[in-house]
Design a protein around this nucleic acid. Structure first.
Lengths: 148, 148
DNA sequence: CCGTATCCATTCCGATACTG
DNA sequence: CAGTATCGGAATGGATACGG
């Protein structure tokens, strides 16, 4: 996205540089929702076609989307998430959960995440360590590389 | 950020509209790292001063940062995360974890998250339901409001 | 249907200078 | 130190038109 990440050793900065853009994030969201074709993205997002083409190209180049030939006789292409792209699921979940909590008036309707196997709404997810522990923002510090 | 969210019922779109911007995300990251003053942000990010002023204003207006009088005799102001802003911790963690996994070459050094109480690096966090379950991307679907 | 190309307006951004 | 003001270049964005 930009020439120089602010801090080249910070993983947050690296990620922001790759997907830290309104349209990229919404395209990825759509991809998780099963959208695969150019015009589907275009209509769903209301994005200009030239911008969409540029973003799709960048995301493919970044290894987040992959171009696939459509099933059936048509020669048209589709854009699907790679494994690297699917690993952005947590990021989209984070965006979704914060929005649900802080960007809607009480009682205002919004879309929700559904467990496809049970059909039930997914409850609020929280980050846990492998042994079930939690980390609060206040407990966490960033250690720069090279520091003791 | 923009006038019209693509889909007004989607929490992802709402969040992206508020913080889905390179500089906003990096400012929030810095705020979690304890940066509080205008010139600290400016030097750390290398951002233009007028852009920084605009972003800080927007983030304060969005209720993510709050202006506080600096301690001590100085009359200078500081920018600190509100509770709403601290709830973006998971989002920053998501950015960080994806970057660590996918945006660095093997062995390339990067900053890490540290548990402030133990001093130990925070292990890989994963999203779990309140009863300890996990949700994979493939299992999840978005149900639009109004759908059965 | 899938893109690319072009035009034009708007915004963004960085650099610099300036004020309290 | 903490901003505001301005300026010019670059990127973004929307609309439309065009070819595979």
């Amino acid at each position: 996205m930009s020439a120089q990440p602010a801090d080249p050793t910070c993983p947050v900065a690296r990620t922001v540089d790759i997907v830290g853009d309104k349209w990229s994030l919404l395209i990825i969201r759509d991809a998780f929702d099963g959208i695969r074709r150019f015009n589907q993205f275009q209509r769903d997002l209301g994005i200009a076609r030239n911008i969409l083409a540029a973003r799709l190209r960048d995301l493919v180049h970044a290894g987040i989307l992959r171009v696939e030939n459509a099933t059936g006789g048509s020669a048209y292409q589709e854009y699907v998430l790679t494994d690297k792209g699917e690993d952005l699921f947590d990021l989209i979940v984070s965006l979704r959960q914060w929005g649900q909590a802080h960007a809607f008036a009480p009682g205002e309707p919004h879309s929700v995440l559904i467990d496809a196997t049970t059909g039930e709404p997914v409850p609020r997810l929280s980050y846990t360590t492998p042994d079930g522990g939690r980390i609060q923002a206040r407990q966490a510090r960033v250690r720069k590389v090279g520091e003791p």
